[in-house]
Simulated scan of single mutants.
Amino acid sequence: MAPRAHLSIYKVCYSDGCQESDVLSGIDRAIKDGVDIVQMSLGGDSTPRFNDDPIVHGSLSALRRGISAVASAGNNGPDHLTLSHDAPWVLTVGASSTDRRIRATVKLGNGMELDGESAYQPTSFDSSVMLPIVYGLFCNDSSKMNQISGKIVLCELGDIKNIEKGKLILQAQGAAMILMNPVPRGYTTSSDAHVLPASSLSYYDSIKVIRYYTTVGASATATIVFKGTVFNSRPSPAVASFLQGTRNQKRRHSRPTSSHPA
């Protein structure tokens, strides 16, 4: 913490994105103003050469004047060769989780309880009532959601944003939604501000839900219990699944340099 620090803020991104000339101009202005640290929460695509990355290029000029440069690793992972700003003179920071969760626990008809997340914590949802589960639907197209009224819909991630899926399900009179992580997402769940009762589950818990559904079939039921904010959640801290992968094996330094809660 730096309670007496002064902030100099430079606008380098506009409606058309973050242009290279604007980024370099912002870094130059910060250098002229005599800042001690340049912090750039700008992602961007991985580049084959350092000269192709304006943040890396500008950060070298800052370093030559004794100014530390900090940049984000980006959110395009976890595939390899997706890391941004991986020069050895840049402190590259990735995202990680805290031990705090906004809990939305999925309770299956077989008694199994799976802890998920949701920022929407409805007080009017009756968690004591077990509702039918439906799966295999297209969660991004309400016209294909037949007979889901009063049911909990299992949705896989992708195609459209999670909140938009919930809006479509709500329009089709679905009662709730369970969002299931694919393999690359692992333990990284999202506490989104949904429009209906929902829970975001890890990949490992999602597999348990699917196994239960395929075993029981049409008689499968579930509910969601909303528990508010809880602490000491595990595993944590954990590196976010969307943190970029290794930049280039030919470069003999590892990135990101550190990770912090997103």
Rank of each mutant, 00 (worst) to 15 (best):
4 R>Y: 09
5 A>F: 02
7 L>A: 13
10 Y>P: 05
14 Y>P: 01
14 Y>A: 15
15 S>E: 13
18 C>F: 07
19 Q>T: 13
21 S>R: 15
28 D>V: 00
28 D>M: 06
35 V>P: 04
38 V>C: 05
41 S>W: 03
42 L>R: 03
44 G>K: 02
46 S>D: 05
48 P>G: 02
52 D>N: 13
56 V>T: 15
57 H>S: 08
60 L>E: 04
60 L>T: 00
62 A>L: 00
63 L>N: 12
64 R>W: 00
65 R>E: 13
69 A>I: 09
71 A>H: 03
72 S>T: 11
74 G>H: 01
75 N>T: 00
80 H>L: 13
85 H>N: 13
89 W>G: 01
89 W>T: 00
90 V>C: 00
90 V>P: 01
94 G>F: 01
103 R>G: 01
104 A>F: 02
107 K>N: 12
108 L>V: 07
108 L>H: 07
110 N>C: 06
111 G>V: 04
112 M>D: 09
112 M>W: 03
113 E>R: 12
113 E>F: 01
117 E>F: 01
117 E>Q: 12
119 A>H: 09
119 A>W: 01
122 P>G: 08
122 P>M: 08
123 T>Q: 11
125 F>Q: 10
129 V>E: 09
131 L>G: 04
133 I>T: 06
135 Y>V: 08
137 L>Q: 06
137 L>A: 07
140 N>P: 00
141 D>C: 06
143 S>D: 08
144 K>G: 14
145 M>H: 07
148 I>D: 08
149 S>C: 05
150 G>S: 12
151 K>F: 08
151 K>A: 08
151 K>R: 15
151 K>V: 09
152 I>K: 11
154 L>P: 12
155 C>E: 04
155 C>K: 06
157 L>K: 14
161 K>E: 14
165 K>M: 12
168 L>S: 03
169 I>E: 00
169 I>W: 03
172 A>F: 06
173 Q>D: 15
174 G>R: 02
177 M>G: 01
180 M>I: 15
183 V>M: 12
183 V>H: 04
184 P>L: 05
187 Y>A: 10
188 T>K: 07
189 T>S: 04
190 S>N: 14
191 S>H: 11
191 S>K: 13
192 D>G: 03
195 V>M: 04
196 L>V: 05
196 L>A: 04
199 S>M: 03
200 S>W: 02
201 L>I: 07
202 S>K: 02
203 Y>T: 13
210 I>M: 13
211 R>T: 14
218 A>G: 07
219 S>L: 09
220 A>C: 10
224 I>F: 02
226 F>T: 04
227 K>H: 09
229 T>F: 07
232 N>L: 13
236 S>F: 06
238 A>Y: 14
238 A>E: 11
243 L>A: 14
243 L>S: 14
243 L>V: 15
245 G>K: 07
246 T>D: 12
249 Q>N: 08
252 R>W: 10
252 R>P: 03
259 S>Q: 15
262 A>L: 10
